[in-house]
Amino acid sequence: MPDYPTLAARLTGQPDLYTALMGLGPAELAPLLAACDADVAARLQSVDQRLLRAILRAGAGGEAVTGAGALRDHLATVDVAPMFAPAIMDGPSIALPTAGQIADMPAFSDRAFDTWFTAQNVPYGIGLYGEHRHVYATPQFADRASVERRTVHMGIDVFAPAGTPVHAPLAGVVRSVVYNADPLDYGHTLILQHDGPAPFYTLYGHMGATLSGLCAVGDRVTPGQIIAHFGDWHENGGWAPHLHFQVMSTMLDQNDGNFFGVGHKGLWPVWSQICPDPNLILRLDAGRFL
């Protein structure tokens, strides 16, 4: 039996409770919270409780998400339909890293990006999974449990003109169709649930207002079916038209039609199990990200 008062004492005064939790070793969340002082308990209770349990499991040497490895194996071998027509792999594309590698590229949230992207004369631009992005510096990407903001991108972005159709890569059921209205949020957002070794989920963010006419909660979708269109600036959260495509091995405690699109760099071993690489489904060759 862990010595919970001693473990709880190690959390007192810690500015980054997530990292501190990772260092505790085997522990269960409920008795740990009961042993914490009021400030630490309130900070921990203010964030996603299943995320905290995933951190504790990883810190104890287990999988942060039970079955995360089995899901990666499943996604690497399951048949998938192309999400775009023409398929990205059938023509040129350009990688769009955000750390200054392309000196004249405007930010994705700058309307000048549209003109710049059109001038590249390629049908698709690719934003990177696992990339640290400085744009996520506003308070909505922070919480009380840590001084570290969530800055590591957990999806793959595909840039193309507003109105571009998105096709379902896998069979699934519509879990949610929601408009997330905060600035720099997803705008119109679709989440599908899929069968695998355990249920898993895909998220389609920054979509157009046509979404609600294409999908309703409980609908079954088939591979290749048009499920959404790229949204324009006024309907997609305030971004250049693109799809944010993300895979989730668990929805954690997020049940309102939204999900974290970026994670903490210091928790990447956990977040990368919660949200594995979407290229397991997109299946673009490595050169598309360079």
Rank of each mutant, 00 (worst) to 15 (best):
Q101C: 07
A119Y: 10
Y136C: 06
R149K: 14
D114R: 11
D157N: 03
M154W: 02
D143I: 12
F117L: 05
P123I: 08
F117T: 02
R150I: 13
A160M: 06
Y129K: 03
E131S: 03
T138K: 10
I126P: 01
S146W: 03
Q120A: 10
H134L: 11
I102A: 10
Q120T: 11
H134K: 10
H134E: 12
L128Q: 02
Y124Q: 00
I156A: 04
A160H: 02
A112G: 06
F159A: 09
G100R: 12
Q120R: 15
F108R: 02
V147L: 13
H132C: 11
W116T: 15
M105R: 12
A145L: 07
I126K: 02
M154G: 02
L128V: 04
D110Y: 04
H132T: 13
T118E: 10
R133E: 00
R144K: 13
R133G: 00
M154R: 03
E148L: 11
S109V: 05
A112R: 04
I102H: 06
V147P: 07
R133A: 00
Y129L: 05
M154P: 00
A142L: 14
D104N: 14
D110V: 06
I126H: 02
P106T: 08
R150G: 08
A119P: 07
A160C: 09
E148H: 11
V152T: 08
A112N: 03
T151M: 06
G155S: 03
S109Q: 04
D143W: 10
T151S: 07
A103Y: 09
R133H: 01
Y136M: 08
G130A: 14
M105E: 10
R133Y: 01
Q101G: 10
R144M: 14
F113G: 05
S109I: 06
V135T: 12
G100C: 15
P123K: 13
Y129T: 04
G125L: 02
S109R: 04
A107H: 11
L128I: 06
Y129E: 03
H153N: 00
R133N: 02
Q120C: 10
R133M: 00
I156P: 00
A145M: 07
E148Y: 13
G100Q: 12
H134W: 07
G155W: 01
D143N: 15
R150F: 08
A103E: 14
